[in-house]
Amino acid sequence: MKLIGEKGVKRILMLTAFSAISALLLIALFILNEGLPFIFKYGVKDFLFSSDWNPHLGKYGIYPMIVASLWVTFGALVIGAPLGVAGAFFLTEYVPKSIMRIIKPTIELLAAIPSVVYGFIGVMVLAPLIRNNFGGPGLSLLAASIILGIMILPTVISISIDSIMAVPQSYREGSLALGATTWQTIHMVTVKASKSGIIASIILGMGRAIGETMAVIMVAGNSVNIPHSPLDSVRTLTANIALEMSYATGLHRQALFATGVVLFIGIIILNSIASVVLRKRAVKK
């Protein structure tokens, strides 16, 4: 390093520091470049709000997939968010720190399990369970919501835990010293103080749910329709891309990239909201 000198080192480090942001720009550029022209040619309204997806007839309406993605994500939040936030409060407020230090990484193992394995469990265990108890094909909106609800748990739990832990101990002591129970302290003091972090954790979980692909392909059933009940088979935006990408060509392939554009923009918006929420918290401190 003597050869390059201190200034040279700094310049090299600065260049590499822009690697992540340039990767992001490159991704945006290539996805938009493939997808946007198609959207404008086909018509924004027809693409986003028509229900007719029929590639060999040249029909590319992704409305059912948008609806399905939103429902599946909503379902995942209904299941995952309360479970995750409850777990986070239990682990931070009721369990000794030493045990929490073991359980938190254990729960984070849930994030390490490959999504195809979740999908497989959904197919082998969950779908038959739903089929036999509630009817329908089993592979459904409900199955996808449950699997995704589980998959977002580690995100929700670990970010919530971090933000609950960031609440100054003195707040809790102040409340407990006035004779409040742990639960009263949680819902009167801790929740308020860690609210933005918990919201951010849910938004990030939402991003994970909306973007999940392989598990959803395996359990959601994949038929293109607007669901009328949780037991209906649905196809999400991500599933739409992954299912047809392997054989799509020409316009069809562009339509899949255009689906990617919709997904990409949605995710960037969610992430921006989450980062603003988290930043606000940092500033408030």
Partner: peptide, 23 residues
């Protein structure tokens, strides 16, 4: 840089797949 890193972390793997394929 931090915002870009956070965004990159949130991008779904299927988008990485699309990007990797086209790029």
């Amino acid at each position: 840089i931090r915002f870009g890193t956070d965004c990159l972390a949130g991008i779904p793997s299927i988008i990485f797949g699309l990007f990797g394929y086209i790029f």
